[in-house]
Simulated scan of single mutants.
Amino acid sequence: MFRFKQFTIRQERAAMKVCTDACVLGAWADVGDGGRLLDIGTGTGLLALMAAQRNTSAQIDAVEIDADAYAQAVDNVADSPFAGRVRVHHQAIQAFAALSEHQQQYGRILTNPPFYTNQLRSPDAAVNRALHTGDLPFDDLLSAVRQLLRPDGQWWILLPPYEMKVVTTLAQSYELYPFHQLDLRHHAQKPVFRQVTGFSFAEKPIELHELAVYETDGRTYTDAFRNLLRNYYLIF
Rank of each mutant, 00 (worst) to 15 (best):
K190T: 05
Q11V: 07
P178C: 11
N128G: 10
R121C: 09
K17D: 07
N118H: 10
L110G: 01
P114R: 02
Q59V: 11
P151D: 10
W28Y: 15
A144T: 14
T117F: 00
D139G: 10
A83R: 15
F201T: 05
Q172N: 09
R54G: 03
E210P: 02
P137V: 02
Q59N: 06
A51P: 01
R185M: 10
T42Q: 09
K17M: 08
H180S: 15
N76K: 07
K17F: 09
T169G: 11
I65W: 05
I9P: 11
H90I: 02
R108S: 06
V196T: 06
G32N: 09
W156E: 02
R85D: 13
F115A: 00
L131G: 07
T56D: 15
Q154N: 08
Q181I: 11
R121T: 12
R226Q: 13
N227E: 14
F201D: 00
L234M: 08
K165Q: 13
G218T: 00
L47P: 01
Q147C: 12
A98K: 09
E215V: 00
D223G: 02
D223K: 13
V127S: 06
S100D: 13
F193H: 15
H89F: 13
T168D: 04
L229E: 11
Q195S: 09
F199H: 03
Y233F: 11
P123N: 13
E215W: 00
F199E: 04
T133C: 13
P123F: 12
R108I: 10
Q11H: 10
N227L: 08
M1Y: 09
D152H: 08
C23W: 06
T42N: 10
Y106D: 04
D39M: 07
V166W: 01
F201V: 02
L184V: 12
D217A: 06
E12T: 13
A171S: 14
R129G: 09
G34N: 05
A126F: 08
F236L: 01
S200K: 03
A58Q: 01
Q103K: 09
K5A: 11
N227W: 04
E163I: 03
I60L: 07
H90R: 12
E163H: 05
L136P: 01
L184E: 02
Q11N: 07
M50Y: 05
F2A: 01
M164P: 00
M16L: 12
D61R: 03
H89G: 00
Y177F: 15
A130D: 13
F199G: 02
L148F: 08
R13D: 15
V77I: 15
Y174F: 14
L170V: 02
L49W: 04
R219M: 06
H89I: 11
V86M: 04
R219D: 05
E175H: 14
L46H: 00
Q189Y: 07
R3V: 09
P205A: 06
Y174W: 12
L46Q: 01
P151S: 10
S173A: 14
F96E: 05
F4T: 04
V86Q: 05
Q181L: 10
V213K: 03
Q6A: 12
L158M: 11
F225P: 01
L228S: 05
Y221C: 04
Y214M: 00
S57H: 15
G32Q: 06
P161L: 09
A15T: 06
Q181N: 14
E215Y: 00
F96A: 03
S122H: 13
A125F: 06
G107A: 09
G198M: 10
E64I: 06
R194T: 03
A98S: 12
H180A: 12
L141R: 03
H209E: 14
M50A: 05
F4E: 02
G198P: 03
